[in-house]
Simulated assay, not measured.
Amino acid sequence: MQNPYPIAALNLNHWFGTCEAKKQALFDINVEVERGSLTVLVGPSGSGKTTLLTLLGCLREVQDGSVQLLGHELNGANGSLLTSLRRRLGFVFQAHNLHNSLTARQNVVVGLQVHGTLPPEQSDEAASHVLGLLGLGDRLDYLPANLSGGQKQRVAVARALVGNPDVIFADEPTAALDRESGGNVVALIKRLGRERGTTTVMVTHDNRILDQADRIVTLEEGRIVDKSS
C-alpha cells in the first residue's frame, strides 16, 4: 500500500566512514511529513539535521531503513528514478551556487530548465515574477558579483520556487537574510503550501521563523527527541 504522505522515513539509520572510522549519524528515524506543510528541523550543530534533509531529498544514498518520497521508495532506487524525482523538487542551500556569468533572472531561468515546466518564451516572465515577489524586481539583470549576500540567497530561493516543485528542501535559507527578507521568504513558502500543496522541509537555527512552522522536529545526537505541531 502506498504511503499517504509525500515524505516518510521509517527506521532510518545512517553512517559515515568505514571500518574503525565508521560512525553512526542517524538512529532509528521515524517521521512523516504532511502534504502542503512546512516542517522545520531544529537541533544543535552536528545533530543530523542536514544529513536527514539530504536523505529525504534523495541527495544521499539510503543505507538502512526506508525513505518514501512522492510515493517512491528511495532505498535501492535506481539512478533514473532518482533523477526524475529530483526534477520534482526544489533545493535551497546555504551556499548560493549561482552561475557567476548569468544575471539574477538567467539563474532563475536555469531552475525552470531543470524542471522543464514552461516553454522558453514564458521562462523570463516567470523568473521575473518570482524575483519580484522576493523584492528583487530591480535586480533582474544584475550579475551575482553585484548582489549582496542576502540578495544572492533570495535569487537561490527564487530558482528553487520558480518551477512550482512538489517538495522544497531548504537548509538554512534565511541565514543570510535580515528579519524582513527572511519573513518574506518563509511567507512565500507558506503561501505555496496553501495554494499549491507544496511541501517544505527546512533546516534552520533561525528562531524568528519557528512560529510559522506547521511542525517542529527536534534532533539531538542523531535522534528525534521531539515532534511538535
Rank of each mutant, 00 (worst) to 15 (best):
N164Q: 11
A104F: 13
D166Y: 13
L85A: 07
P119W: 05
Q24V: 09
H129S: 00
L136H: 01
D166H: 14
V186C: 04
L81V: 14
L81G: 03
L38K: 06
S37L: 06
V186K: 09
A126S: 11
K23D: 08
S45C: 06
Q212F: 15
T54H: 10
I29T: 05
N13P: 00
K23L: 11
G197I: 15
R87F: 14
H205W: 08
R87Y: 12
N97K: 01
R139Q: 14
H72S: 10
S66R: 11
S80D: 15
L55E: 04
G222K: 08
G149M: 07
A176L: 07
Q212L: 14
G111S: 11
R196M: 12
R88K: 15
R154K: 08
E73N: 13
Q94D: 12
P6F: 15
I209L: 14
N78E: 13
I7E: 00
L59C: 10
A170N: 04
V167N: 07
L26H: 02
L55H: 05
L147M: 15
L118I: 02
G65Y: 12
D206Q: 09
D206C: 06
P6Q: 13
D171Q: 08
F16E: 05
G222V: 08
G135C: 04
V185R: 05
S123T: 07
S229F: 09
V40M: 12
G48M: 09
Q24T: 09
L98Q: 02
K49D: 13
N30S: 10
E20R: 10
G65Q: 02
S37F: 15
G193A: 10
G163C: 07
M202K: 06
C58F: 02
G46T: 08
L59M: 15
H14C: 02
L188A: 12
R179K: 14
V185G: 07
Q94K: 11
D124S: 13
L59S: 05
N78T: 03
S80F: 00
N207W: 01
L26F: 08
G163I: 10
V185Y: 14
E73Y: 11
E180N: 10
F169V: 10
L161M: 11
Q122W: 07
T39Q: 03
P173H: 13
S37G: 08
L102E: 12
D28G: 01
E125Q: 08
E195H: 04
V157F: 14
G48N: 06
A95M: 09
T83F: 01
G197N: 07
I224E: 03
T199Q: 02
F16N: 05
F169I: 12
R60V: 04
Q122R: 12
S228C: 05
V110Y: 14
V130Q: 00
V203A: 03
E61K: 09
Q106N: 11
Q212H: 13
I216K: 03
T39N: 02
L177V: 14
P120A: 14
Q151H: 06
